[in-house]
């Protein structure tokens, strides 16, 4: 017999939700870095956010880690037992949001 896709929860109206995706979970969307890539690097002995960032480029893209650094910190905490509150986060740097070279250059007196 053909197995049916399973869903963990149903909707209120009784319809089933689609099966959980087997696609990799992308944690850093700017640089397309997945959860399993992050766990592999941590298990190779690189247990700081700074190292994970430099090996995988997560947090180096357009959003500069605003979306992904906290989820990465939580994964790192799961893997190492180090509380997120004790982790050193990469230094935030200007510009806090992307700005065109032309605009920045013209603002130079």
């Amino acid at each position: 017999m053909k197995s049916k896709p399973r869903s963990r929860r149903g909707r209120a109206d009784g319809r089933k939700l689609p099966a959980a995706s087997r696609e990799p979970t992308v944690v850093c969307r700017c640089e397309e870095v997945t959860e399993s890539e992050i766990r592999q690097v941590i298990r190779r002995g690189y247990t700081s956010l700074e190292e994970v960032k430099r090996i995988l480029r997560c947090g180096m893209g357009h959003c500069q880690g605003r979306n992904c650094l906290m989820p990465i910190a939580r994964i790192l905490s799961q893997e190492t037992g180090i509380p997120v509150s004790q982790m050193r986060f990469p230094t935030p740097r200007p510009p806090l949001k992307p700005l065109p070279l032309g605009l920045l250059g013209e603002s130079r007196k």
Binding site: T91, R93, P95, L99, L101, G102
Partner: peptide, 11 residues
């Protein structure tokens, strides 16, 4: 031609 390209980080 680079005028529209956006800066994301300085260090």
């Amino acid at each position: 031609r680079l005028k529209g390209v956006r800066v994301i980080r300085q260090w």
